[in-house]
Amino acid sequence: MKKVYTRPKTLKEAHFHYCPGCGHGIINRLLMEVVDEMDLREKAICVAPAGCGMLLYNYFDIDTLESAHGRGAAVATGIKRVRPENLVFSYQGDGDLAAIGTAEGFHAANRGEPISVIFVNNGVYGMTGGQMAPTTLTDQVTTTTPLGRDPILAGHPVKICEVFAMLDGTVYLERVTVNNPAAVLKAKKAIKKAFQCQLDGKGFSLVEILSPCPTNWKMGPVEACRWIDEVMTKQFPLGVVKEVS
């Protein structure tokens, strides 16, 4: 019988702590699939965030540093400048990159640091219990926007890819999702491309991944995946936002 799928070698045999239907598990697995396929285990250094993704070092069998909330791009900059031959990527949530760490992400992008940012956008602060994130959609209900996000009081969803696209240092920015098998394959391709950009020394690359958070969206996993298609992608359109050849 032909083996069609197996656990990536660099994904440890541990149980994910993620909630049922969460996108982090898929994204973690995709990253390690890419690390395996591009033979990067001995080159990769991951910068983990604060937030739901912070325990990824329990799953990744690669060198990992856990950064302070929001500082991933600055820490990755320090590592990459010392070890330009390594593959350095940060894994950051929306609160991490689009709120508390916007300055660090923005300026790393502007300097064109040849690092890759895996930006997980699920529109809420997951780990702290579902508060409004900078990427929370207009009218979306969270624990701190009980009547829905009112742009007049709470601003608008932050579009990191579109903002970073205006910076000359960025070479590859793509928004993907992981809510169906075809989308997962596209997300994997995007991660590969981002890593390749870095290995080629082109500059700053970022993959924004719209990721379901059924627990904090108060939805079932299937409904959450559908909501990404029907609502989330309307405010966060999928696709390549910038690619410099």
Binding site: A74, G78, I79
Partner: peptide, 10 residues
């Protein structure tokens, strides 16, 4: 934080 990154890189 860049110092931290450089330091952890040796």
């Amino acid at each position: 934080n860049m110092v931290l990154g450089a330091s952890v890189a040796g």
